[in-house]
Structures are given as structure tokens and as C-alpha cells.
């Protein structure tokens, strides 16, 4: 395990968030913005999934296992936040 895998889940969240901020700032609240938001969300969720499979295959000693669990929960939380961030495209 290394720190890139550890922080990868949250890094994708950050990418998603700032992309959405950019989309909202450029295209305001129109249909284009909503579609792009949805697209970005799907991409980032796919990214989280890819990271998940990579981490799933890791093995090692107690510390590796600990970091692996931590990474997985970080991915879960990041995915939740990404999902929530897509709500405005549908609802507001």
C-alpha cells in the first residue's frame, strides 16, 4: 500500500468537485451544465470503482491491511459525496 492509493479516493472527489464548480461557473444552470455534471459524475464514480478493484487485490502485513481498510472506507465516503454532488443537476 502506498499513500497514492490511500488518498486516491478523495483525490477523485476533489477532481469531481472542482470540475463541477467549473461547469457551474461557465454554463450556469442550463441543460448543458446538467448533462456535463452527470457525465463527470459517472466518470468519477467509474474511477472510484477502478481504484476499489486495485486496492481490493492488495495484500500484506497488519499495516497494509489497515491502510487497505482505510482506503476502502475513504472510497466509499468519496463516492457518497460524489453522488450527492450530482443531485443538484437533477433537482435544482
Amino acid at each position: 500500500m502506498n499513500w497514492r492509493l490511500l488518498l486516491g479516493g478523495m483525490a477523485i472527489w476533489a477532481l469531481h468537485f472542482f470540475a463541477l464548480y467549473g461547469i457551474g461557473s461557465i454554463w450556469h444552470s442550463g441543460m448543458n451544465a446538467r448533462l456535463l455534471t452527470g457525465l463527470m459524475t459517472l466518470l468519477c464514480l467509474a474511477g472510484e470503482g477502478w481504484l476499489l478493484t486495485r486496492i481490493w487485490r492488495q495484500s500484506g502485513d497488519h499495516l497494509d491491511a489497515w491502510m487497505r481498510h482505510l482506503s476502502l472506507t475513504l472510497i466509499a465516503l468519496a463516492s457518497l459525496a460524489i453522488l450527492w454532488q450530482a443531485f443538484p443537476a437533477l433537482l435544482s
Partner: peptide, 18 residues
């Protein structure tokens, strides 16, 4: 701010309370 952007920040504010 645009309604959509406001929504993004509202969602992130929810996420940070978890």
C-alpha cells in the same frame, strides 16, 4: 451564484457533516 453551483456547495456541506 447560479442555482446549480449553489447546489454543489450545499451537497458538499452535507457531506462534510458525515
Amino acid at each position: 451564484m447560479p442555482t446549480l453551483s449553489v447546489g454543489f456547495f450545499s451537497a458538499a456541506s452535507m457531506a462534510v457533516s458525515v
